[in-house]
């Protein structure tokens, strides 16, 4: 795995840990298994593009639907509707994306946050993209961070 990919993974893990320990009220986020080269299936979550002059990726936080509901409830402080869950997952990845941007200023200080998109099911990538999934626990809830990197031409 390239140094840039490592930097994206570490930055996303750091931002997810900070989110879990503050906005979600958990003890933090921790890695529970090794990196995988495919996105998980049957999950709900949101992805955010971070695009700069020298680097770019989509960063995602996904979980099984019941866990996504629980994460959303932790963020909102009340039981969420289906629409609230979608919105909360988008906000979760938006907050994580901001943390990733701050952590990657040395890699690329021109990174800009895009608007989040919701994905239900499985993310499909193109051949020119690299998918990195990392199983994590937020508090005790299983989730994944997923990073979709564009491979250099």
């Amino acid at each position: 795995m390239s140094a840039a990919a490592d930097a994206w993974v570490e930055a996303t893990l750091g931002a997810a840990d900070e989110l879990a320990a503050t906005a979600l009220g958990y003890s933090g986020a921790r890695v529970v298994a090794g990196r995988q080269a495919a996105a998980p299936v049957g999950v709900l979550g949101a992805y955010l593009p971070l695009i700069g002059a020298r680097a770019g990726a989509h960063v995602g936080i996904v979980a099984e639907p019941g866990v996504a509901t629980a994460l959303s409830e932790a963020l909102l402080g009340c039981p969420p509707s289906e629409e609230d869950t979608a919105d909360a997952m988008a906000e979760i990845v938006n907050i994580v994306g901001g943390g990733v941007k701050s952590r990657l200023v040395e890699l690329d200080n021109t990174l800009k946050l895009g608007l989040p998109v919701l994905v239900e099911g499985r993310l499909r990538s193109f051949a020119r993209q690299q998918t990195i999934s990392v199983p994590i626990e937020m508090g005790e809830l299983p989730a994944w961070i997923v990073i979709l990197l564009s491979l250099e031409e």
Binding site: A23, S72, L75, L76, G77, C78, E83, D84, D87, A88, A90, E91, N94
Partner: peptide
């Protein structure tokens, strides 16, 4: 984000 408006209001 409706979620964020809810969080900020809270």
């Amino acid at each position: 984000s409706k979620a964020m408006r809810m969080i900020v209001a809270r």
